[in-house]
């Protein structure tokens, strides 16, 4: 089980308190009626699904209830950093990423 640090509650809590929210940093087409089919398909269905560092969203459903972002390595499952929704991606200092 992952131990996830909620950036709002500022404490590391077990994974069962959270719900996974899918790939992060995806932007919904700003003008839905003008977006092309290709833009919609990319937003709705296409996923990076990387083997390595992956930005994803989690929601602290059994805590503060808020969404936040998380950088996790999908090979080792190690969580590199978590940060609040809407804030810039923090710089990762330890660099190994695994």
């Amino acid at each position: 089980m992952l131990l996830i640090r909620c950036p709002y509650c500022e404490t590391a809590r077990p994974e069962v308190e959270f719900r996974h929210g899918g790939e992060a940093l995806m932007e919904r087409p700003r003008d839905p009626s003008r977006a092309s089919d290709a833009e919609w398909i990319d937003y709705l269905y296409m996923r990076r699904n990387p083997k390595g560092p992956h930005a994803e969203r989690w929601r602290h459903v059994h805590g503060c209830g808020r969404f936040f972002n998380c950088l996790r390595d999908t090979v080792s499952d190690r969580i590199v950093v978590t940060w609040r929704a809407g804030e810039p991606v923090p710089e990762v200092t330890d660099g190994d990423g695994a």
């Binding site: 992952l2 994974e15 069962v16 996974h20 992956h54 994803e56 999908t74 090979v75 080792s76 499952d77």
Partner: peptide, 13 residues
């Protein structure tokens, strides 16, 4: 498991 992963293992819960 709830999250995407290539680790070939999952959580006990």
């Amino acid at each position: 498991d709830a999250y995407t992963s290539y680790s070939q293992r999952g959580a006990l819960h």
